[in-house]
Amino acid sequence: MALLEVRDLRTTFRTDDGLVTAIDGVSFSLEKGQVLGIVGESGSGKSVTSLSIMGLLPRGSAATSGQVLLDGRDLLTLGEEEMRKIRGQEIAMIFQDPMTSLNPVYTVGWQLIEAVRLHQDVSQTAATKRARDMLAAVGIPNPDERLRQYPHEFSGGMRQRVMIAMALANDPKLLIADEPTTALDVTTQAQILELIRRLRTDFDSAIVMITHDLGVVAEICDDVLVMYGGRVAEQGGVDDIFARPRHPYTWGLMGSMPSRSHGMDRLQSIPGSPPSLLRPPPGCRFSPRCPYVMDICRGDPPPPLRQVEDDPHFHVEACHLDAASKREEAARLLAAQEIVR
């Protein structure tokens, strides 16, 4: 049994302008020690997915359906108190902006100890020791001294390490990282990615990595979920997706990256802007921006997820274009791209 199995997750928000379906039928599963990447641009629903799993969306205005099975237990059926016990203990989360994610008025030690004592019935001394050990484990020098300092005395990279230490304090089975390196400089990003890579083996937890950067995906993920407008565009193993991308949005994302377009005068950009979830386009949500759009794409129902025929592993995509054209187009586009290294 998979550690985490998400089946047909659907989250709807009630807003002044009516119901908004922020994510619409997302399914995936994740084994222990695996890293799943969720890639997408703003409004793709990638962050809502993680908050839905954590049960952190406001209960009044957000409705989530489907199943989120953690070790076979459906989290969506749990009450707030049961869910609270799971948050921070079985599933932990780190966020994009380490500068604002720690409470400015408490010491780092206080916040780490709080994380420990919320879930473990241990003494203050034991919790302090655990906090200290966690700081050391994420590579923070002088952990004893650092425990007594406030977040503003830490740099961005160090704060993200504190967030990771706090997330791992209770040995969670699953770590959700929501754009953990986006706000960091590239050398700090490399440090944090290195740390996550190491922790994945040391702590043996599964990781959901939410990012907009295909580079980060290629560096540390095993599986990828490409999301667009709240739906899955393409999903599969990282090697399969990069070697045989089958959805025009994935192509566009790859073509938009300067690092994959070495020597080209122009990038293969995607026209238009990411869709507003308030008024998503009918049919395939990528259709208004898709260069391969056909009449069928604009009408309901949206294209279903289909297995990519020439891939032996699990690799699905949702596009009406016929398989042969997609094969040819992907091959043509990839041949044109030269990757900077």
Binding site: L56, E80, T100, N103, A115
Partner: peptide, 15 residues
């Protein structure tokens, strides 16, 4: 609406 409130909730702190 601050990020650290979300962090506290994600830690499993009671409401």
């Amino acid at each position: 609406g601050e990020d650290y409130i979300r962090t506290a909730r994600a830690k499993g702190a009671p409401g």
